[in-house]
């Protein structure tokens, strides 16, 4: 079994077969993370670069650990420590690292479509670790993985995504992935943070959070970027928390065994109340572990095989 493309750029154009394969593979690999010796030799001699044009702790670390657990060599470039600050173009940076022999480039970039651009330039595999407001496919997959592990399925579940849908690549990847796997997805947030035509992606949109949460199996709360306030998209965090914040009272509308998710990092007391974030329904720390398993699966599926024909 092999993924259809050399790159993982988004869930919009990933088949359900490939998503299923990644989830199943992650299921098998998750056990390695809990071993005393967290290392398998599978990707010995493979070199993986994380190229981050935006600050990130968890995603970058998660990819790096995934690579190390599988014995790949991992190299990191962050904008502040590279020639990127001197104004080198993405093409030149990419070409430079490719001739150094990278097998895979994992990129985060503030501009939507940058990973598609990079994938056109490089022969190496490109993994999208978040591009602008477009997609964050590994986050989408790890959220799906977490739901599937807890609920045993995705099909038929009602998943509410709450918060800044407009600027969220996490929301888009979750919407594409979950709807393809047969879940019902609803989104909610202030109307200034819901993009036009969102319902054409196969979801229902609400401006009342209560309507979205009602009867939900899963409530996925998105991070609110506080600088959106300066752009006039909402008046204050106080009002946001009062009208759109996810708290105990609103979650009472969900199914009794609901899951509460957040991709992190959280603004406690703004988009999510602290007591529920740390409560029994929360999968927030589990998502982090699952993130490593999902990334190991993708690394294995893209780098684990090669092209010559000597199958036994």
């Amino acid at each position: 079994m092999r993924l259809a493309s050399k790159d993982v750029l988004g869930l919009q154009d990933m088949s359900t077969t490939d998503m299923q394969l990644i989830l199943d593979t992650a299921e098998s690999l998750k056990e390695i993370i809990s071993r005393p010796i967290k290392k398998v030799p599978t990707l010995r001699g493979k070199t993986v670069l994380t190229l981050f044009y935006e600050p990130s702790t968890r995603t970058r670390t998660s990819f790096e650990l995934a690579g190390k657990y599988m014995s790949a060599d991992t190299v990191n470039i962050a904008t502040t420590t590279s020639s990127v600050v001197k104004g080198e173009t993405l093409r030149d940076t990419a070409k430079t690292v490719e001739v150094m022999g990278m097998d895979m480039v994992i990129m985060r970039h503030p501009i939507s479509g940058s990973c598609h651009y990079l994938a056109k330039i490089l022969d190496a595999s490109v993994i999208n670790a978040g591009d602008g407001m477009h997609e964050h496919p590994t986050q989408g997959l790890l959220d799906m993985f977490t739901i599937r592990q807890r609920k045993g399925r995705l099909k038929g579940l009602r998943v509410a995504i709450v918060g800044d849908i407009y600027h969220s690549r996490v929301a888009r990847s979750n919407i594409w992935g979950l709807t393809k796997m047969g879940a019902e997805v609803v989104v909610a947030g202030p109307s200034t943070l819901i993009p036009p035509y969102i319902e054409e992606l196969g979801v229902k949109a609400y401006t009342r959070v209560e309507e979205a949460i009602e009867g939900a199996d899963v409530v996925n709360v998105l991070r609110l970027q506080l600088e959106r306030q300066q752009k006039g998209l909402f008046p204050s965090t106080r009002e946001y928390a009062r009208i759109f914040g996810v708290n105990q009272e609103r979650l009472a509308l969900a199914k009794v065994d609901y899951l509460l998710m957040h991709p992190g990092p959280m603004n406690r007391g703004v988009e999510i109340a602290s007591d529920v974030a740390d409560g029994e329904h929360s999968t927030i720390t589990e998502q982090v572990t699952n993130g490593v398993a999902i990334r190991m699966a993708i690394l294995y599926l893209l780098l684990g095989g090669a092209t010559d024909e000597t199958a036994d």
């Binding site: 939507s112 479509g113 591009d131 407001m133 888009r172 993009p195 035509y197 054409e200």
Partner: peptide
């Protein structure tokens, strides 16, 4: 353009 494609591609419209 601000529209369906800007939403899908995450580009500002």
């Amino acid at each position: 353009n601000l529209g369906r494609v800007s939403t899908v591609l995450g580009l500002r419209g």
